[in-house]
Design a protein around this nucleic acid. Structure first.
Length: 454
DNA sequence: TCTGGGGTCCTAGTGCCC
DNA sequence: TCTGGGGCACTAGGACCC
């Protein structure tokens, strides 16, 4: 999908079509998740700090991501892919490999092109969004082709032309070559795929290690026989939070770790999993990152056990100077099998989602009645996040354009209306309430944040 | 400029067992 | 009995991807 989150927001909000839209974290330490093509003109890119994006494109619309909404659209698209072949390997919400050969969906260049064009038309009809298709003989080449095809295109790499096409490209084009490997190679005078092939396998293994060296050399020769894998098992589950301001108070750090442990267990249970290895992640004030892990005798999904382990791990970490991020994860996963799980949950000192959350909230908000202007703004943004849908008793469906200082500004429009008007309300206006996103396509399936089609 | 969140995979060191 | 080495599990960190 092309600039997926931003395109979904533009489809949902007529007044943003053709405008610069940036989706990402809006806090002081937020980064850009996706920028619309209009925003990219100003130099805004994924993973860029939000503050920098705002300097580059001060007039863009800045929205927080709505993953439930994107997930629902993603499920529609994945459904279309599954109608082509049972072998669909999702890479993320907006990208997947499809093996068109196994079940005979395509057998040559012409049939593959037809399938690809029909898929693009179907995606457009079902979701109202554009997607790009890369067709090639391997996953690596299909991925490169789809990048070349963006936005809203289709690229087929003709068999036999792969090496000639790849040769002059930057090493950074190859999947798995990021900033660090790119720099490493550049220092050795290797900048293109041709340079990689000339360097030879032994040299690449010496420079980058066995797995990476062999893999890169094969890719440089356009060799990639990795199959499309339909079912991938989850290997770990984790949650993490970056704090707007570094936390110095050791007690508060401990409370946050417990809160994260609870959230992690909740996710683990939702997935029907348990795990043996508990991982604590700490990013300190200077951005250095530490992980500490502990492997238990058997898998658990008991919040008390995970909390305790995370707490023990925290004891071995020096947090003086402050921490900007904390995370808790569980790996070494097993299918959940313990029969007495629910008994354990009921008997645990604090059931998941209970107790600790409230404690932390009180710590934050219980310091008196004089809330600063910034605090009021934070509270308003929490209740009315930018970009989220709302419904007003009198004015109908709209979305939050911004909030703060006790006010929330709403633009009243729907995916199929003309660009709408803006009105401002008090944040505690009883006629205003959060709403589900509306379907993007007339007559198409509706979309709710739970991913249920309506 | 100042760096999110949720993942995967790889490497290297260490300790233990056979 | 001592030593070496392979294999494995565990731990920590780093790179990468979307």
């Amino acid at each position: 999908m092309d600039a997926f989150y931003a395109s979904a927001e533009q489809a949902s909000k007529p007044s943003l079509r053709g405008k610069a839209v940036v989706v990402g974290g809006l806090g002081p330490r937020g980064v850009v998740a996706t920028a619309s093509y209009e925003a990219r003109v100003f130099g805004v890119r994924s993973a860029m700090p939000m503050a920098q994006a705002r300097r580059l494109a001060p007039n863009a619309a800045y929205l927080v991501p709505r993953f439930g909404f994107y997930r629902a659209i993603s499920e529609q698209v994945m459904g279309l892919l599954h109608s082509l072949s049972p072998l669909v390997e999702p890479l993320s919400l907006d990208e997947a490999f499809v093996d068109l050969e196994t079940e005979g969906a395509a057998w040559d260049r012409a049939s593959a092109r037809l399938v690809g064009e029909k898929l693009r038309a179907d995606i457009r009809a079902v979701t109202g969004l554009t997607g790009s298709v890369g067709l090639a003989a391997s996953k690596m080449l299909a991925k490169i082709a789809s990048e070349e095809a963006k936005p809203d295109g289709l690229v087929l790499i003709e068999p036999g032309t792969e090496r000639a096409m790849l040769g002059p490209m930057s090493v950074r084009t190859l999947p798995g070559v990021g900033p660090a490997t790119g720099d490493h190679l550049r220092r050795a005078g290797i900048t293109t795929v041709d340079d990689l092939a000339e360097a030879g396998e032994d040299e690449l293994v010496r420079m980058l290690g066995k797995a990476h060296g062999h893999g890169l050399y094969a890719m440089a020769l356009a060799r990639d026989d990795r199959p499309v894998v339909a079912e991938r098992e989850t290997k770990s589950v984790s949650v993490e939070d970056t704090y707007d301001v570094d936390i110095h108070d050791r007690v508060r750090v401990g409370l946050e770790v417990q809160r994260l442990a609870d959230r992690c267990v909740r996710r683990l249970r939702e997935a029907g999993l348990s795990g043996r290895t508990i991982v604590l992640k700490v990013r300190r004030y200077d951005f250095s990152t530490l992980t500490r892990s502990e492997t238990l005798r058997g898998p658990t999904d008991d919040p008390g056990v995970v909390r305790e382990a995370a707490g023990r791990l925290l004891e071995s970490v020096d947090t003086t100077g402050g921490v900007r991020l904390l995370g808790v994860g569980v790996s070494g996963l097993a299918d959940f099998t313990q029969e007495d799980l629910f008994a354990q949950a009921a008997g645990a000192a604090g059931v998941v989602g209970d107790g600790v959350d409230h404690l932390v909230e009180e710590e934050r908000g219980g310091e008196g009645v004089d809330h600063s202007v910034e605090e009021q703004q934070v509270v308003a943004e929490r209740r009315w996040p930018s970009g989220h849908d709302v419904r007003h008793a009198e004015f109908g469906h709209g979305w939050v354009q911004g909030s703060g200082l006790g006010r929330v500004t709403v633009r009243f429009e729907t995916p199929r209306s003309e660009p709408g008007r803006v009105r401002t309300f008090r944040v505690d206006d009883l006629e205003l309430e959060p709403a589900e996103p509306l379907p993007l396509v007339a007559g198409g399936p509706g979309v709710s944040v739970d991913g249920v089609r309506t």
